[in-house]
């Protein structure tokens, strides 16, 4: 019986997170990913979309980034589409047009979520004031319930201390007219990240979550570090989704 299940879902075997973290499984189906720019929101959102899809969910990923000109969720459309993830990206993402417009398909995707509430709908929001893009969709969050995950990286200079990280969280909540419900610790130094760099940030992340009165939903680490972070609970192993240019 057990073997049969595995052969039926070969994709699950390949991925490091065969068993999705309970904290991620328990999230509401409408998930907003926010944070200081450069915290790693897109990496987290793309990996969460992949994880949810591989666990058999219907998934929509909305690139709501009106801040970044390049390196964005739209870079991952091809891979996610093959996993069955519906991707909604701004018309001008990764083109030469510098217009922070949001297409009507975003509203369409949120309306689809209302009709189909078991569809996991993830919004990848631009950094800092990029959260202003959320304001116009407030009705959907208010009426349907949501989780807003605030992604933090202790190695980012303006969020290296708890005060700085909290200030940006409040700015985001104010611009987006929405409140955070959980914290994601994505502290990393890019390709140079060692296991110790992540474990060193655990107590900081917990203290920050406590100060904000929010749960620490998970700690992210690159899949290459699998097995090296057993001292921390709820580690979400992710694959780098940033476009590589060299």
């Amino acid at each position: 019986m057990h073997e049969k299940c595995q052969t039926m879902k070969p994709r699950l075997q390949k991925h490091a997170n065969i068993n999705m973290l309970e904290t991620l499984r328990n999230l509401k189906n409408l998930i907003v990913v926010c944070g200081h720019f450069g915290a790693g929101k897109t990496n987290f959102a793309v990996n969460l979309a992949r994880e949810k899809a591989e666990a058999g969910n219907k998934v929509t990923l909305i690139d709501l980034d009106i801040v970044n000109p390049y390196f964005r969720a739209a870079d991952n459309v091809a891979e996610l589409t093959t996993l069955g993830v519906k991707c909604v990206v701004p018309d001008f993402a990764n083109t030469n047009v510098d217009i922070p417009s949001l297409p009507p398909t975003v509203m369409g995707a949120l309306e689809a979520y209302e009709r189909e509430p078991d569809r996991v709908t993830i919004l990848d929001v631009g950094g800092d004031n990029g959260a202003v893009a959320l304001g116009m969709y407030k009705r959907f969050f208010k009426e349907n319930g949501y989780d807003l995950l605030y992604v933090i990286n202790m190695y980012r200079p303006l969020t290296e201390d708890i005060e700085g990280a909290e200030m940006i969280l409040r700015e985001i909540e104010w611009s987006g007219r929405i409140h955070a419900t959980g914290i994601v610790n994505n502290s990393n130094l890019g390709v140079e990240t060692a296991a110790a760099d992540i474990t060193d940030t655990d107590s900081w992340a917990r203290e920050f979550a406590k100060k904000c009165g929010l749960p620490l939903v998970c700690t992210c680490a690159d899949v290459s570090l699998a097995g090296k972070l057993d001292s921390i609970p709820d580690v979400f192993y992710i694959k780098n989704a940033t476009k590589q240019i060299f």
Binding site: P157, E160, L189
Partner: peptide, 16 residues
Amino acid sequence: MAKKVLMKGNEAIAEA
């Protein structure tokens, strides 16, 4: 500040 920080190139110019 931690010895190493993760930054965008633009931010690194400003901080430097």
